[in-house]
């Protein structure tokens, strides 16, 4: 599963806001210019980013092996025709470029997740989103990170208990309802206990976040990102 790995690469030392900005820039440019030339240029950016984060291309894509087969559906459907000649390879080019664009974005996302601890992500969210919305999201994101493994183990235990009682021989709707209701009951119990504990500890909207500060390397990366945006905008206006 995709998760943060401690390290000392350039990616680990960059500010999370810089990494989010680079992802946003690459996504925007890739959406605006899904042409082979631009995608090639963005491939170089992504390869450099992966190298800077100490992640190989196969390792980054392996994180998404569950979703990769679904990407192949688009070019296949794009090429199919409902009448003769039935298959039109030229029509698969646009979906293929879109799929390639998605692969680039997924690789960058893997690099971000690999190098950024949840605590830094929380601080970046609070900085990026203004006011109470940002504070709510920051607090909620940290709770999601913390409770995801607990709810996963709850669900695993529920499924194991169901299997040993031959639950997998029941009808699928009863099986799913049993799982959903059990998972909900446990989630409610955990929520009530956690809410009580947080009230007892005087939960506040303004906790002390980890210090986020741009350094020279952040400015350098942001300058490159700004350069890419400027080139993309220039290309749009002269098109």
């Amino acid at each position: 599963m995709l998760s943060h790995e401690p390290g000392d690469t350039l990616g680990h030392r960059l500010d999370p806001r810089t990494k989010l900005a680079v992802q946003a820039v690459v996504a925007a440019v890739a959406l605006a210019h899904a042409t082979p030339r631009w995608l090639l240029a963005l491939t170089v950016v992504c390869l450099l980013a992966l190298r800077g984060c100490g992640l190989s291309v196969p390792a980054a894509l392996a994180e998404y092996r569950g979703v990769l087969p679904f990407l192949l559906v688009a070019p296949l459907l794009g090429a199919l025709r409902l009448g003769p000649p039935w298959v039109d390879p030229a029509a698969a080019i646009d979906p293929l470029l879109s799929v390639y664009r998605t692969l680039l974005l997924l690789a960058l996302a893997a690099a971000y997740v690999h190098t950024t601890p949840p605590r830094d992500s929380r601080a970046a969210v609070a900085w990026l989103l203004p006011g109470t919305v940002g504070r709510y999201c920051a607090l909620g994101v940290s709770l999601v990170f913390r409770f995801l493994p607990l709810l996963q183990s709850d669900l695993r235990r529920l499924r194991a208990a169901s299997w040993v009682r031959l639950g997998d021989e029941r009808r699928v709707d009863r099986r799913v309802a049993h799982l959903a209701i059990g998972a909900l009951a446990r989630a409610f119990r955990r929520a009530d206990a956690l809410a009580l504990a947080l009230r007892a500890r005087c939960l506040s909207w303004n906790p002390t976040p980890p210090a986020l500060a741009f350094e020279w390397r952040d400015y350098a990366v942001l300058c490159v990102a700004a350069g890419i945006v400027a080139a993309a905008a220039l290309s749009l206006t002269t098109r």
Partner: peptide
């Protein structure tokens, strides 16, 4: 959506990241 975008493995098949928001799904 925000938690998945900043790295919590909550999207389908344990995926995450901003890129998912601009993927076919």
């Amino acid at each position: 959506v925000v938690a998945g975008a900043v790295g919590a493995p909550v999207y389908a098949y344990g995926a995450s990241g901003v890129g998912q928001l601009f993927s076919p799904w």
